[in-house]
């Protein structure tokens, strides 16, 4: 478990750095790929809700610090995303091939709306038109990223044995 935490910390840190230093410079088709989100959701699916929430909080802190943005802003959104997809991974998503794609698709859209709402609440500029216009391209780019990223994360964090995940909800039907 400790080794998993170290691996996850390094992975999330590298993903956040690549996101802020390299990927954010490109906006093909008007959208931008969110590597941190895809890595986080893959981690949450494979290691559960608490792991996902903690990884999301840490990733958000790194991003907000690097961008000198409002601290806690990205942490809040990524914590919720990590926890929610972690719960999905612990319940209905287990062993489903489409789970990573469904998770990334749904969370990409909700993340855009969440950012918009939170900015609005904080009194920042929240240009809904520009954000919603970029969602389809971002969705496509994130889904393209999902295949290699989920594959890599799955190699680094192989699915746990049944005994290790006794806290999970098992569906009988």
């Amino acid at each position: 478990m400790t080794f998993d935490v170290v691996k996850a910390a390094v992975l999330v840190f590298v993903a956040a750095l690549v996101q802020v230093s390299i990927l954010s410079a490109y906006s093909p088709l008007g959208g931008s790929a969110n590597l941190v989100l895809v890595v986080l959701l893959s981690l949450a699916l494979l290691r559960g809700s608490l792991f996902g929430a903690a990884a999301g909080f840490a990733a958000g802190l790194v991003i907000d610090t690097a961008n000198l943005d409002t601290l806690g802003f990205t942490s809040l959104l990524l914590t919720l995303a990590g926890y929610w997809i972690g719960r999905y991974g612990e319940t209905t998503a287990r062993d489903r091939f489409h789970a990573p794609y469904t998770s990334v698709g749904v969370v990409t859209v909700l993340y855009a709306f969440g950012t918009l709402g939170l900015r609005f609440v904080l009194g920042d500029a929240a240009p809904a038109g520009a954000v919603l216009g970029a969602v389809p391209a971002s969705l496509l780019l994130n889904l393209i990223l999902t295949l290699p990223v989920y594959g890599l994360v799955r190699r680094l964090f192989p699915p746990l044995e049944l005994a290790d995940r006794v806290h999970e909800v098992r569906l009988l039907a």
Binding site: L50, F73, L76
Partner: peptide, 29 residues
């Protein structure tokens, strides 16, 4: 999970309303 969400909200509030975290954030950056 609730703790992390609360921590995020506290960070947002402090960071948004004061400059108390600016030096820490600057050192982190």
């Amino acid at each position: 999970m609730v703790g992390l969400v609360l921590a995020s909200l506290v960070l947002i509030t402090v960071s948004f309303r004061s400059t108390a975290l600016d030096s820490i954030q600057g050192a982190g950056a």
